[in-house]
């Protein structure tokens, strides 16, 4: 019982100290502070990669007392994030709303011009990381190289080679289109709800290959059930345990087989400079925290701090790249 008592006591002390600290912080920072809980909009449903990441960030903010008011995650995943984008547009000037983005940040407005959303208008906060993609097969296929993969797809024929991925027009389907074009192959693309399900379908042998993120396949890879063939990154960008996976460039397929998923945070249009500075400050502390650095390493994410106009420029350039990709895939005119 003594142990319990001490733990409860330490918990109470931790809480008290935490509250005290946030009070001190308030005085220290002369700039803007949130007056009520901050809505942390997530462009995807509960449980997906984007959702987990946002809740992880919320956890870091909470654990380290980075904000006097809590960040409350709200999922608005409807219509591949269309719902979230519209929400941000309708909340122009609202300092208590921010949003975690993924690549549907580019593709959804491109595919739904009726939404009337121009992402260049939103206020950039920061890019925290870039996620990467690999080409994965089940180890039982015996395929160990990209060449063998291409040969196997050709031998099976487009009817019989099933590539699993996320919804049509989303990242996985764009990466698959890149593969098809590069190697002059055709696959049957089967869309699933999320990357986790796709990973599991590969292990259950319901599909033949995937273009999962490293974190989605990591568990199965360690258990010897799946095998990455190549990484859609430039040479040397991916480090840690995923760094040993060869890139398409290293394998001699040119430098164009590269695709990233950005993990960024943005705010609505028309918010004050000191509000923007507050959020940049909070996320800078998140970015520098041990938890975040460890997470990056574990999940095979590439660190990618970027903020201010440079971030907006990055968004605009990426949107243009996605416009071309969607055109090539026949998704838009």
């Amino acid at each position: 019982m003594k142990k319990l008592a001490t733990r409860i006591l330490s918990l109470a002390v931790a809480l008290g100290v935490g509250l005290g600290f946030s009070a001190v912080q308030k005085d220290a920072a002369a700039g803007w502070e949130p007056k009520k809980p901050v809505e942390f909009v997530i462009m995807a449903g509960k449980g997906g990669g984007a959702d987990r990441l946002a809740r992880f960030i919320q956890g870091i903010i909470e654990k380290n007392n980075l904000s006097s008011k809590p960040f409350v995650p709200i999922n608005k995943g409807g219509g591949s994030g269309a719902e979230a984008l519209r929400y941000l547009k309708d909340h122009a000037g609202d300092p208590h709303v921010i949003m975690a983005t993924l690549n549907s940040y580019y593709t959804t407005p491109l595919r739904n011009p009726g939404l009337g959303v121009d992402i260049a208008e939103f206020t950039p906060i920061t890019r925290l990381a870039e996620d990467t993609f690999q080409l994965w097969v089940h180890t039982d296929t015996g395929i160990t190289t990209v060449d063998e993969f291409v040969a196997a797809v050709k031998a099976a024929g487009p009817e019989n080679w099933k590539m699993g991925g996320t919804g049509k027009g989303q990242e996985d389907s764009l990466v698959t289109a890149m593969l098809e074009k590069k190697f002059d192959i055709k696959v049957t693309y089967v869309p699933y709800k999320g990357g986790g399900t796709v990973a599991k379908e590969l292990i259950g042998k319901h599909i033949n290959s995937t273009v999962n993120n490293p974190s989605e396949q990591a568990g199965f890879w360690e258990a010897g059930k799946s095998r990455p063939l190549a990484s859609f990154t430039p040479k040397g960008k991916l480090t840690g345990r995923f760094g040993d996976i060869p890139t398409f460039e290293e394998l001699g397929y040119g430098t164009d087989m590269v695709y990233y998923m950005q993990r960024s945070v943005i705010a609505p249009a028309g918010i004050d400079k000191d509000v923007q500075a507050f959020y940049v400050g909070v996320f800078e502390k998140v970015y520098k925290s041990d938890e975040w650095q460890e997470y990056l390493d574990k999940k095979g994410l590439i660190p990618g701090w970027l903020t201010g106009t440079a971030l907006t420029e990055y968004f605009v350039a990426e949107r243009e790249a996605h416009r071309q990709m969607l055109k090539a895939a026949g998704e838009i005119d």
């Binding site: 509960k46 449980g47 959702d51 992880f56 990591a218 568990g219 360690e222 460890e294 997470y295």
Partner: peptide, 16 residues
């Protein structure tokens, strides 16, 4: 799904 998110935060890798 939320619990799974929790496991990741606690530093546990779900999987086989």
């Amino acid at each position: 799904a939320i619990l799974l998110g929790g496991m990741v935060i606690w530093g546990l890798e779900p999987g086989p």
